[in-house]
Simulated scan of single mutants.
Amino acid sequence: MKARLVRVRGRVQGVGYRDWLLEQAAANGLSGWVRNRADGSVEALLCGEEAAVRDVLSACRRGPAPARVDTLEESFAEAPPEPGFTRRPTL
């Protein structure tokens, strides 16, 4: 299992990025969460098989059609304690 904490900056709030990422994660069997940050970025914890995490990270660099991704930062992370992929409140 591979876990990554991701921060996405650009035009990523108000364009359906979180819902889109929920779909991407579910389609790839990932666990974790996604949330908006007060600074206008989106943060997510992605955990799953290495190839699936890599595929979702690649998709995150593009985002959904109305989004504009300027930067994506990723770092190693611990796996979430619970299974499934959820939306968390804004931090």
Rank of each mutant, 00 (worst) to 15 (best):
G29S: 12
A3E: 04
A79I: 01
T71H: 12
W33L: 11
A59F: 03
D55T: 10
L5R: 14
A79E: 11
G84Y: 06
R9C: 02
D70E: 14
E74Q: 14
A77D: 02
F76M: 10
M1V: 07
T90F: 01
S41E: 06
D39L: 08
V53S: 10
V6I: 13
G14K: 00
F76E: 15
R18L: 06
Y17E: 12
C60S: 05
E49A: 15
R9T: 14
S41I: 05
R62T: 15
E78Q: 12
P83K: 04
R37Y: 03
M1N: 00
L21R: 07
R11D: 00
F76V: 14
A38Y: 15
A27M: 03
G63W: 01
A26R: 15
P66M: 10
L46Q: 07
A65R: 15
L30C: 12
R37M: 13
V8D: 01
G29P: 14
L57N: 01
V69S: 04
V34F: 10
R68C: 05
R11K: 12
G32F: 14
P89N: 09
L22W: 07
L45E: 07
R11W: 00
R88N: 01
V69T: 03
R18N: 05
G10L: 05
P80S: 09
S58A: 14
R7E: 10
W20Y: 09
V69E: 04
E23L: 13
Q13L: 05
V42G: 10
G84Q: 07
P83Q: 02
W20H: 06
D55H: 04
A38I: 13
A77C: 01
L21V: 04
C60I: 06
W33F: 15
A77P: 00
G32A: 13
R9W: 00
G29R: 13
C60R: 03
C60Q: 06
R68M: 06
A65E: 10
T86G: 07
V34D: 07
A38D: 15
L21M: 11
L46V: 08
V56P: 08
V34S: 06
A59H: 10
D19V: 02
A77Y: 00
D55A: 15
R87G: 00
A44L: 02
A26V: 15
E74G: 06
V56T: 08
P64G: 07
G84W: 02
A25D: 03
A77S: 10
P80Y: 08
V42N: 09
